[in-house]
Design a protein around this nucleic acid. Structure first.
Lengths: 223, 223
DNA sequence: GGTGGTAATTGAACGTGTTCAACTGGGCAG
DNA sequence: CTGCCCAGTTGAACACGTTCAATTACCACC
């Protein structure tokens, strides 16, 4: 990959990205060939590899770009809502709505769970995007008026990120009309979460909290 | 694929499977080529495709075979334990222990979440394996002395299957020594589940149950 | 013992993503 | 103006999974 910000080559990079997306949309990710894409971008076959590590990496680049375009919608959702439920819902629905036109395309990214693989959502290479998402959820949690159990609160943003990841996955393959099942899943689970947090103080639930806290500590490390 | 049970060709099929597993173990799934595998099985390159739809399908065949070898361990675990926690733990740990020698290999299966894809754990083609697993969990639930909320009980076996699937995924990429983190995850989450079920009767939790019940109904359908 | 037909096997050929040695072009130091 | 450097570009070549028309092996039936 080229270095910082030479707008000269950034333009060709963008041209390839655009040509690729066009081809992906027209013929699907798998059917689209790199030769087609290169031709559509008016370059030789191998040229794209100067700018992108692989065919899938193009999709990641699209994801990164979408992540930026998506920011204003998130800011608005955070500004408009005060309760934790509404804020989290706002973030997630904004993301889904933004991705809707290219929903099938994201399926190309779901193939990698291995944190070793560059394109995995858990990989070192995708840390920046991930951290940005987590930061949104941090803000969603911080300014909400709910008081959270101390041993769980620090992990909540990362948990919400994981939750959102799972929901996105469900959404990707949700074939119900208008993805209604995803909508139900989001709605009910959010409400369950808020109810759970509300009852955090009840003495009955103490053992559950302790278990959850211990679990999160060993998984995410102390903090 | 050939039809029912002509042991003649089943033998060559097994020979290919064995050669493939050997090659996979020696050089990893990705590095191993179909040409190597065919050569190791003393056949021409394309021959394997008479018995297996794809390279990945060989891994599925391995999975199916393992599923059978695994059965006695499950039966023993079910016979030996009476509590829900111990029974579920027994099933899952038996599976993990059985898969341990070929742990890296299963990573080849994780690439498909799309229920459309033949190798997806949610696909029509893998229904039989899935149903068998769910049936184990049904037995684990049925004979345990816990009484469950009526609106959730019918879905519990399928939920446990999903839970086990997620755990297996975590385990696959758990790089802690002896997969200790997976062990902690299994232990704590199981205990949390049992606690949750125990408190099912408490009136506070009624709203949570209702939400969960409604959610499961729209996701899995009435029943 | 032929004879037909199905099952099994062959290996070349296809299309793919990716690599790479060679080439091009433009800017800059002397 | 000349020579050099190197980011950018080229397209043939590679290795792979997979397909398929052609060939062989096997066996039931006359």
């Amino acid at each position: 990959m080229p270095q910082k910000a030479i707008p000269k080559s950034a333009e060709t990079r963008a041209r390839i990205l655009e040509a690729a997306l066009k081809t992906f949309r027209e013929r699907g990710f798998e059917q689209a060939t790199m030769r087609e894409i290169a031709a559509a971008a008016q370059m030789a076959t191998g040229a794209a590899y100067y700018y992108f590590d692989s065919k899938e990496a193009i999709v990641l680049a699209f994801y990164e770009r979408a992540q930026e375009e998506w920011r204003p919608a998130v800011e608005e959702a955070l500004a408009r809502n005060r309760t934790l439920e509404a804020r989290v819902r706002g973030i997630i629905t904004a993301k889904l709505e933004h991705f809707l036109p290219n929903r099938p395309l994201l399926g190309a990214l779901t193939g990698h769970i291995d944190p070793t693989h560059p394109l995995s959502p858990f990989s070192e290479q995708t840390r920046e995007i991930r951290d940005q998402d987590v930061a949104y959820f941090e803000r969603a949690v911080r300014d909400s008026q709910l008081r959270l159990p101390k041993n769980i609160a620090p992990y909540l943003p990362r948990l919400l990120w994981l939750y959102q990841m799972g929901l996105l996955l469900f959404w990707l393959y949700d074939r119900s009309r208008d993805q209604q099942r995803t909508a139900v899943l989001l709605d009910k689970t959010l409400k369950m979460m808020v109810l759970g947090v509300r009852m955090a103080g009840l003495p009955f639930l103490r053992p559950v909290h302790r278990l959850a806290g211990e679990l999160l500590e060993t998984l995410y490390g102390k903090a």
